[in-house]
Amino acid sequence: MVETLLNPKQMIASRIAKEMKDGDVVNLGIGLPTMIPNYLPEGCNVILQSENGYVGLGPLVGEIDPDLVDAGGKPSGIIAGGAFFDSLMSFSIIRGGHVDLAILGGLEVDEKGNLANWMIPGKLVPGMGGAMDLVVGAKKVIVAMEHTSKMGASKIVKQCTLPLTGKNVVDIIVTEMAVFRVTEAGLVLDELQEGVDLETVEKNTEASFIVNPTILSQ
């Protein structure tokens, strides 16, 4: 494999791919998370759940079918062995703990694992769609986001100020700079992305965090 330099979004997607185990049922939010399957290692096959009503979401093969789209409304495919169902089944799967991993974007995540990703009052109010159910129902919740806003402000904050999607719901935060885990003791900086040093993460992170000793010993 030819090593090529990854852009920030690719770095995030490729790192999250490593959190997946063969056979996991995974729900991917729209946008960046949909890039993750490109980085799954050989032999790691996950089953993608699409909240609009099926498992076995796959790439578009052949002609577009107007009745087969993903949760963002984009033409998609379904793998052999997949299954369609109604929205009641879809959200029973999601809320009932039958999804192993949910990967969502974020506007803010805080030290307690609170997530805000569905609205900016007075500006952007797209709605929560399925996100609030995913964060309470999935066994593990990973937030995939760039470390700072376009204005350079930290998106990992002491306390979320935007309306929450869920309270104490995030397990892992993956940015282009680092990987954090939310623990009882607080946020733990678990890994630095390649080429990023601790000082850079400290400078760009508003939240307090504990540094995993393996990083300090590097």
Binding site: S87, F91, I94, V125, G127, G129, M132, D133, G137
Partner: peptide, 19 residues
């Protein structure tokens, strides 16, 4: 329309909506 006050919107989480 929502921000202009022309449309009232009640936003509901999708799993709650279907239930």
């Amino acid at each position: 329309q929502m921000i202009a006050g022309e449309l009232e919107v009640e936003l509901v989480p999708m799993g709650t909506f279907v239930e």
